[in-house]
Design a binder for these strands. Structure first.
Length: 508
DNA sequence: TTGTGTTTTATTGCCTCC
DNA sequence: GGAGGCAATAAAACACAA
């Protein structure tokens, strides 16, 4: 541990000439992830600036991006493989995800499956080219998944590097938080039970993946194809609320219902006019799930706190599943008392990808043990995530009790400003408290509209899903209640669009 | 404390494009 | 031929169980 600390603290000084492998600091990783979520193929200028900002060499930046893409690719492949196994029982989906499915990189070596060159995607994205939603979905998945997710995630409005760095301090943990939030706003294990019930029990990583992002869910997502858009309004909100008990449980969330049924219903989504998505549990769950599992690509600043990258999701999923016995124990102990809002409050977003994983895990198990965050003292530009996740608050239960959030956030603000690396956000939204931020989540209309405005500015005319994947307000989460009522396994692993329409008609 | 498995980083070779 | 990217590989760092 101490040695690694040394490595961290010395990294920037020795990374260039020291052959010994050095880990990037959480702040660096977060920034990289953030950037990666928006630009999988950064230009030279971007790399240079990024390298300068992060104190890394361009070579390191390039290498990191390269490996990051590979990671995405690998994860996507694994995920697809897992889904493919699931898909065997649903031939419809098989077509969309035939073969290995996606390749995040434009390798023509894997030409046996549909592939969208990320570079092309990005270039088109920048030029406002409108991809077929299906492709977008796929591409989005590549970006992001959980990651995760992360992790996770932002708009293309990055006119400058700073814009791209958003509030990296928020996403990872929000992401993580969302993963564990159930309909009741409490944390819960990732429905592993349902996965088990499915009978399909992949081993190893696939097992974890299957538990995290149920293959059926992904299958449904794909099944929806072009109609599915993650940046649209919350699926289902456009429809008349289901009659109570339609899905064995009330739809309304006593707390968040207004946002869902009201504002959300009024969401003006470019896509939903013509394509009314079924309010079926599957779909809604899908949205929720996609939000959780997909990369928070193009997450706009207003909803930056939602996701952060596939790897974060992935990593969190895997690792935290492993530690769920301890982690969730703490979580649930607090969750019972905290509403979802509280949960968000409890996570000011100071967690970086690593903070949300290793450190916390270490914390959960080893208490204060863990890597010393060198950025606490040696990196003036580090974000508060390091501090937030410092061993002092590593104990989650203790952390929940902590209400020194505002100070933390404000602190980060100072950092951000000084550093100029991470975009300043209207800190009122964030700092004003926890609550203010939460309000945003509960106001899908506002969030979405802001996103669209931003999109318009960016010239990204039709990039539905990416934006929405992350812009889905947390208020939507409770909607999952209905679907979750029946575990994922109870949902159709696939259904045709006819079925989808049928569901709609039935609701109507 | 140690062994094992996973993840991340760095290096190298090959390929494609300009 | 150079640049950029991908893939394979090795090695270090890390987490976790015994």
């Amino acid at each position: 541990m101490e040695e690694s600390n040394e490595v961290h603290s010395e990294e920037n000084k020795t990374s260039f000439d020291n052959k010994k492998r050095v880990l990037k600091t959480p702040a660096q990783l977060t920034a990289l992830e953030k950037f990666y979520n928006e630009h999988k193929y950064p230009t030279e200028e971007m790399k240079s600036q990024l390298a300068e900002e992060l104190g890394l060499s361009e070579k390191q930046i390039s290498g990191w991006f390269c490996h990051r893409r590979l990671k995405d690719k690998r994860l996507s492949r694994d995920e697809t493989y897992a889904n493919g196994r699931q898909d065997r029982s649903s031939g419809v989906i098989q077509d969309r995800a035939s073969g290995l499915g996606q390749d995040s990189c434009g390798s023509t070596k894997h030409g046996d499956y549909r592939y969208v060159d990320p570079r092309e995607v990005e270039s088109r994205r920048l030029s406002g080219y409108d991809f077929p939603p299906a492709d977008l979905t796929r591409e989005h998945r590549i970006h992001y998944t959980e990651r995760v997710s992360m992790d996770n995630t932002s708009s293309e409005s990055s006119s400058s590097l700073q814009d791209r760095f958003l509030t990296q301090t928020e996403d990872p943990y929000d992401m993580e938080t969302s993963r564990y939030i159930t309909d009741n706003g409490v944390f819960s294990p990732l429905n592993t039970k349902g996965a088990e019930n499915m009978g399909y029990k992949p081993s190893g990583y696939l097992k974890v993946k299957g538990e995290i992002e149920n293959a059926a869910i992904t299958a449904v997502k794909r099944q929806l194809g072009r109609h599915f858009r993650e940046d649209g309004p919350p699926l289902g909100v456009e429809f008349d609320p289901l009659p109570p008990g339609a899905f064995e449980s009330p739809i309304m969330d006593p707390v968040q219902e207004p946002s869902i049924g009201g504002d959300a219903a009024g969401l003006d989504s470019p896509d939903t006019s013509g394509v009314k998505r079924q309010p079926s549990p599957s779909t809604r769950y899908e949205v929720y799930n996609s939000k959780l599992s997909s990369q928070g690509l193009y997450m706009h600043q207003e909803n930056r706190g939602i996701m952060h990258g596939v790897d974060m999701v992935e990593r969190k999923s895997r690792k935290q599943l492993r530690q769920k016995s301890t982690y969730l124990k703490d979580i649930n102990s607090s969750a019972g008392k905290n509403s979802s809002l509280d949960m968000y409050d409890a996570f000011p977003g100071g967690m970086s990808a690593y903070n949300g994983n290793r450190k916390n895990r270490m914390s959960s198990k080893h208490g204060h043990r863990g890597r010393k965050i060198t950025s606490e003292t040696t990196e003036p530009w580090s974000n508060e995530s390091d501090k937030v996740c410092s061993p002092n608050i590593g104990q989650r239960s203790d952390y929940f009790k902590s209400k020194a959030l505002n100070s933390v956030v404000k602190h980060s603000e100072t950092h951000d400003t000084e550093r100029g690396l991470f975009t300043m956000i209207p800190r009122e939204e964030k700092v004003d408290g926890e609550c203010k931020a939460v309000k945003d989540y509960h106001n899908p209309l506002r969030v979405t509209m802001t996103d669209e405005v931003a999109v318009g500015k960016q010239g990204r005319v039709n990039f539905p899903h990416q934006d929405y994947a992350t812009s889905v307000p947390f208020s939507q989460i409770p909607e999952r209640k209905n679907q979750i009522k029946g575990t994922a396994m109870e949902m159709p692993s696939s259904f045709s669009e006819d079925e989808t329409a049928e569901t709609n008609s039935s609701v109507d």
